[in-house]
Design a protein around this nucleic acid. Structure first.
Lengths: 188, 188
DNA sequence: TCCTAAGTACACCGATCTGTTTACTTTCGA
DNA sequence: TCGAAAGTAAACAGATCGGTGTACTTAGGA
């Protein structure tokens, strides 16, 4: 395994700090201190803090969806079971000791403007999650895969809010039970 | 109608600015400029910015739940219809030209620590919403009012995320359709 | 071996942040 | 009418913000 590039070091530490402390509340001085690089190096890789934020969001999207797909497909064999296993992944995620909600919901909260790049990347992340659910629904033989995917994702988002805002980590299990109703409806 | 007190002026403008621009991104200088008061006056009513934030969250909770209850009870006669009318209220809210998502989800995003006062007030707001739903479910004769209330609220939270992060204002209607399944189940 | 690219350390910039202080003015009830 | 309470404007404090400039050091390939 090659040593991580300076750019990777910066993105990794920025990702962790932005996720657990927020975007505005995390200064670049803190990031360079923890990443162990000079400010000059940071600004040679990213023109502005906003550009760094975008890079962290893109990396988070990649890491998150990879984990979601891996855990979902590892613990369930059939496409139908996988549609529900997504909620088991959620439950595991909620148990992470550094769980701080959905980074993209958080980003949208801090960057309200819908036309702002960070908000747009967040919306795109959500679309990609729905797209994955739709592919599972199609494989499972759902009558309306797009509809089922949005129903399941609606429940996922609800569970995330429960887990983060209210601290209710059991929400994933309840969302799973609710999801079963919609899966059953579409698959007979 | 008596002229609003200075304190009310401050809270009202702070509420609007925090809601549309975020908490960290809104400085007290901006608040006092728009509220038309001096900085001294602000700090005579609130010891710190954090205390002002808490006051705005409490006022938001009051305004939001009052509106939700008013609109829900105005447009539906029976308790059963009211359980679904909550989603019509959501749809109206999403259409507000200054809609910026749920202020309490946004606050939790910026104040991640669960023991932090702002996060705790946000969690309490969500509990109060569920409590209202539970009272409607009880009146409607639900078999498990608390369970139904949490199911409906899970769908509400999901719809809010759809509307805010993805800009999908139609989510309220879809959540309503999903909610009907759970209402029917509990009321025969 | 030597040149270049990339890195470090750190001072510095102007702006902005929360919060305080000073000195003056307005308001209003006893 | 007068005096206290509450307000104003504005300077100020010290910290921190995002971002730049300078001078020096390191590492690696031709």
């Amino acid at each position: 395994m090659p040593a991580p590039s300076k750019r990777e070091q910066i993105v990794d530490h920025a990702l962790r700090l932005f996720y657990s402390n927020g975007f505005h509340a995390t200064g670049v001085d803190r990031i360079i201190a923890e990443a162990g690089v000079s400010k000059k190096t940071l600004y040679s890789h990213f023109r502005t803090k906003d550009e760094l934020i975008l890079a962290t969001l893109r990396k988070r999207d990649e890491l998150f969806r990879n984990r979601m797909m891996r855990e979902t497909e590892m613990h369930a064999a059939s496409p139908r079971e996988r549609l529900l296993a997504v909620f088991d992944f959620l439950g595991n995620w909620f148990q992470d000791k550094d769980f701080s909600g959905c980074m993209f919901i958080n980003a949208s909260a801090e960057f309200a403007e819908e036309s702002c790049p960070s908000h747009m990347v967040s919306a795109e992340h959500k679309r990609l999650v729905v797209e994955y659910l739709e592919s599972l629904a199609t494989l499972a033989g759902a009558r309306e895969p797009a509809e089922l995917a949005n129903e399941l994702n609606m429940l996922m988002e609800g569970a995330i809010v429960y887990a983060y805002v209210m601290g209710d980590k059991q929400a994933a299990g309840r969302a799973r039970e609710m999801a079963r109703v919609f899966v059953d409806r579409q698959l007979d």
